[in-house]
């Protein structure tokens, strides 16, 4: 119970401190530059000053945190990548050279590319199919809710769930993993799925597809509903078949949303490491960049230089998406 009480007190203090800052700083500003009971010119001048200062009071904590937790680390990682394992001695491009000669890196890079192609494609594909079909049946919302559910499950929890499905029992023992049980039922030989070279990657990817399809489905479903009924009715009058309507009328109209879904999942794929860590820890040819970086950071005392290099590679992979995002956001702002 003592632990609970301490937890509760720390929680409350943390939240109060944050709220206190906003109240306090704004009250302070208003009392230094009052806007009541003063001559009009003074009030006008004070209000102008207040209006110039206040945005920074509002933004202050956010900016500080963003700079410290995201911006500064990017710069610092870039610098660290030129230093040795403790981050003290300068080693030039040694880490980069090591990286591109390391077989493990090539393997994880290849795997990452596979993930990047397979997971967004399958998630978006299933998401689109399910969104389309659930929109036309009466229990669609229940179906959606159930398919969306894995979103709430942690990667590590999902890994256990799926590890249980891939579970292998040797010899004549009864299989308790669903997949092997099915294989045996249809007369096949049970397999240790997560150890089959190359194909095991796909068994890991399925987990992320399982999680992300719900996300794609929800967003695409909203986009599909946003399509004006008139365009579909017009297509029906023009004699288009169901599939033609879907591919030539509906899909083109939600192309923008599909792109957003795709890129969001892509970014997630680049960051994902929990699944690999929990399922195989990169063994049997399933290493990916994020997990490789994690293991260089902690295992065997850690090597800051090398893991920084891997982090930079991940960063480099998201830069195009970042530029595209910023461009979109800017275009949108100008449209306002």
């Amino acid at each position: 119970m003592g632990q609970l009480a301490i937890a509760f007190v720390t929680m409350t203090l943390g939240v109060l401190a944050c709220a206190g800052y906003f109240y306090g700083s704004n009250a302070l500003l208003d009392s230094i530059f009052p806007s009541k009971n003063r001559p009009a010119e003074v009030i006008a001048r004070n209000l102008r000053i207040v209006n110039q200062v206040r945005p920074w009071l509002f933004l202050g904590p956010a900016l500080l945190l963003l700079v410290f937790y995201l911006f500064y680390p990017v710069v610092q990682s870039a610098i660290l990548s030129f230093y040795g394992r403790t981050g003290e001695e300068f080693v030039g491009f040694a880490n980069y050279i090591w990286l591109f000669q390391s077989g493990e890196f090539l393997e994880s890079f290849r795997n990452n590319m596979l993930w990047l192609i397979v997971v967004p494609t399958l998630s978006t594909f299933f998401g689109l199919i399910i969104a389309t079909m659930t929109d036309r049946i009466w229990w669609g919302n229940i179906a959606k809710s159930l398919i969306f559910m894995p979103m709430a499950i942690s990667f590590i929890g999902a890994s256990i769930i799926w590890k249980f499905i891939y579970e292998y029992r040797s010899g004549g023992d009864e299989q308790i993993g669903l997949l092997n049980a099915l294989v045996v039922f249809f007369g096949g030989e049970p397999q240790t799925w997560i150890q089959i070279p190359f194909w095991n990657n796909f068994f890991l990817m399925i987990i992320l597809v399982w999680i992300q399809t719900g996300f794609a489905m929800v967003i695409l479903s909203a986009a599909l509903r946003g399509i004006p009924d008139e365009t579909i009715e017009a297509a029906v009058l023009d004699g288009a078949s169901g599939l033609q309507i879907f591919f030539r009328i509906m899909v083109p109209q939600i192309w923008g949303t599909i792109a957003v879904v795709w890129t969001t999942i892509t970014i997630l794929v680049l960051k994902v490491f929990d699944i690999v860590l929990a399922m195989t820890n990169g063994q049997w040819g399933t290493q990916v960049l994020a997990n490789q970086m994690f293991s260089w950071l902690f295992q065997g005392g850690g090597d800051y230089g090398r893991s920084a290099v891997i982090a930079l590679v991940i960063m480099a992979l998201v830069v195009p998406i970042m530029v595209w995002n910023i461009k979109n956001a800017n275009a949108e702002m100008e449209g306002r």
Binding site: A40, I43, A44, L47, R48, N51
Partner: peptide, 11 residues
């Protein structure tokens, strides 16, 4: 008859 060019809306 007062110059309010620089005065904020509420005043």
């Amino acid at each position: 008859n007062q110059d309010v060019t620089q005065v904020p809306p509420s005043l």
